[in-house]
């Protein structure tokens, strides 16, 4: 009987507790697990569901004899309600979407990343807080308000300062979209820079690097996946934005030759026309097919981003 007397009661109490744990606890634990699992896979379910329904609505048009996919993709003739000769070509709108997004990114990426670097590395506490609040405010402005600014204020400025015949054009849409994507790029970019361990900064400074050298040689390479993600989310915003570009780009079916030309984007076209297209008509199905096309475009952008990020990581 040399066993320490303390060990037995401890074991016993453990066993007792295990045996008497109420069934309710066990059950609720299990239920919560299932709930969290459902939440986890819901994103996949929704994406698949949306894709399924959009595709289902679009599919019948592909089998239609007077519809050609080549014409849909490569013709700029968009006459969905013509009385004489209906033509469904979205090439001009693909060009419109790309040109507006490209211009927006050309403006937003340097500004967004620059602001992210400044906020994260260069400015002091007070400025930092103010800047962050203001940028969040910028992100909270509804897109229709941006569109309105584009249609009224910006279009007048563009006509006055550039002499362009019309103020609603690629430049206008690009600037508006850039203003809308900058907050996203800034906040995600700043997070990416913040995630770089301070030991990197300390090591860099200890080696005698200037602050700019530190940013360029140490922080940017270390944070590049996060920064790329920031840029690509900005691109996603650009491709997907509807209301603002609908109002600011002039909504003209036209392959652009310069930044002062009006264009129409794929999203704006769906928004403007789906309401009137009679359900299950060819026009309706073609608009859903445009949705499939948009889906494919964003999928390609995301996939490319993923591959690039993985490529960077492997190295």
């Amino acid at each position: 009987m040399n066993t320490p007397p303390t060990s037995r009661p401890a074991e016993e109490s453990f066993a007792v507790r295990k045996a008497t744990r109420p069934a309710w606890d066990v059950l609720s634990e299990r239920a919560l697990e299932i709930l969290i699992y459902l939440c986890g896979i819901s994103a996949i379910v929704f994406v698949l569901g949306i894709f399924f329904f959009v595709f289902k609505e679009a599919l019948p048009i592909l089998g239609n004899s007077h519809f050609s996919l080549t014409q849909f993709l490569f013709s700029d003739q968009w006459y969905p309600t013509s009385e004489l000769n209906k033509r469904y070509g979205v090439f001009a709108m693909i060009a419109g979407t790309f040109s507006v997004t490209a211009l927006a990114m050309l403006i937003a990426v340097p500004f967004g990343l620059g602001a992210a670097i400044y906020i994260s590395e260069f400015c002091g506490g007070r400025t930092k807080e103010t800047l962050k609040v203001v940028i969040e405010l910028l992100a909270a402005i509804p897109s229709v308000v941006w569109g309105f600014i584009g249609l009224t204020v910006m279009s007048r400025l563009i006509v006055n300062y550039t002499g362009a015949p019309v103020g609603v054009n690629i430049l206008n849409g690009g600037i508006i979209l850039a203003l809308m994507s900058v907050p996203i790029i800034v906040s995600i970019g700043e997070d990416a820079l913040k995630a770089v361990p301070d030991s990197y900064r300390e090591a860099g400074l200890a080696l005698g690097a200037t602050r700019w050298q530190l940013v360029r040689r140490v922080l940017l390479p270390a944070a590049k996946t996060g920064l790329l993600a920031a840029v690509l989310l900005g691109v996603g915003r650009g491709v997907g934005e509807t209301m603002a570009v609908l109002m600011a780009t002039g909504h003209a079916v036209h392959i652009p030759h310069g930044i002062f030309d009006s264009v129409r984007t794929l999203t704006a076209n769906i928004a403007a026309e789906l309401g009137e297209a009679p359900a299950n008509s060819d026009h309706y199905r073609v608009l859903f097919l445009t949705g499939v096309l948009l889906f494919a475009l964003t999928f390609i952008v995301n996939l490319a981003a993923d591959l690039v990020v993985r490529g960077i990581r492997r190295r």
Partner: peptide
């Protein structure tokens, strides 16, 4: 009943 020329600014 003929179609419109493309490239007009189509307002909402």
């Amino acid at each position: 009943k003929k179609d419109f020329k493309l490239g007009s600014r189509d307002m909402n």
